[in-house]
Design a protein around this nucleic acid. Sequence first.
DNA 1: GCTCCTTTAGACAGGTCTGTCTATCGATGC
DNA 2: GCATCGATAGACAGACCTGTCTAAAGGAGC
Lengths: 191, 191
Amino acid sequence: MGVTTKRPSARERLLDAADRLFYAEGVHTVGIDRLIEEAGVAKGSLFYNFSGKDDLVAAYLAGRDERRRARIARHTEGLTDPVEKLLAIFDALHEAVTSPGWNGCAFANASAEAAPDSVEAVAQRTYRVWFSDLLLELATEAGYADPAGVAGRLRLIYDGAVASSRIDAHPAAALVAKDLARLVLEAAPRT
Amino acid sequence: MGVTTKRPSARERLLDAADRLFYAEGVHTVGIDRLIEEAGVAKGSLFYNFSGKDDLVAAYLAGRDERRRARIARHTEGLTDPVEKLLAIFDALHEAVTSPGWNGCAFANASAEAAPDSVEAVAQRTYRVWFSDLLLELATEAGYADPAGVAGRLRLIYDGAVASSRIDAHPAAALVAKDLARLVLEAAPRT
DNA sequence: GCTCCTTTAGACAGGTCTGTCTATCGATGC
DNA sequence: GCATCGATAGACAGACCTGTCTAAAGGAGC
């Protein structure tokens, strides 16, 4: 008998469907019924594995968070120069925006119309703190006179590329962003 | 008898409530009942003046569009140098992000989880085309060797400031954006 | 064999949402 | 005076949405 792959668990199929549907169409647009039908799962399995829709949304965003960090890590590992690492973050972004189905930042989309204390907003803040810290650490390590200022400018450029590429449905913004980042990194004074 | 202001029409009160509630809490979060209660209007008046919620959403976004264009016009009028006009756009942005209740781009928020052919997405595209054309015209007028490139960079910076200021709930991004815009405008070659 | 964990199908409840309809009322204009 | 237009209150329909519950079955490990 050939190599047979065991059917994933209901939990895994749910997370997979959530990742696809929530990202492509929005966490509030996609209802439970759509979700379980796409996942091929009974409704009871959803509430057995998760406490509710919010819990599933949180798990979906946590997965996005983890994979985004992993993507950045993959692009920066092996590099020693912190300036190179900062630029590599934009390579990771370029990979993301050119991947099929790109639809902008999952956190931004989900929390665009969510309450400030919602799971969506909390997930966005969690990611945001990590990302801001990463930029600040690298800018400090690189010896810039104003590391917080450099990090802030790079973050603005990063945000701009994410927004632009989604609005215009065109991935070129990531390349523009890397050029701008290089310009900023070269223009900023170092100690 | 003193100066009495006549009570605005149901239509005006609806548009006013829509502008406040839709912008602050989201077009899909706020339902009709919330809206008519806040406006002090009967439900019948909503459907008398508008064909439905979508129509009201479209009117809300059209109003935002008009006021944003007016704000930019107010900041650029009187200026002759196209480079100054480009920089003045970021002054208009600064005014917007520092105004009370700032909650990011109304179009971006509304269309973050909306279908591509929804009234939200259409309104966003309409505004986007106008804004892109404006930047391109000014960059061309300024005599840059690559006006489309300059316009694209400025647009990315603008988008970044809008996104950053919302995510971090901090208006400083607009100032950072203007500095970056100046850097771009000074670094770009002119014919 | 037996138990426990997971899954299934589907009915059901309770809430919310958009939109319709009726009946009435005030103001305005002719 | 009368017709028309805008507005009002509220009941109602129909769709959709989250979440619960029941009864049964599959599968893995002991």
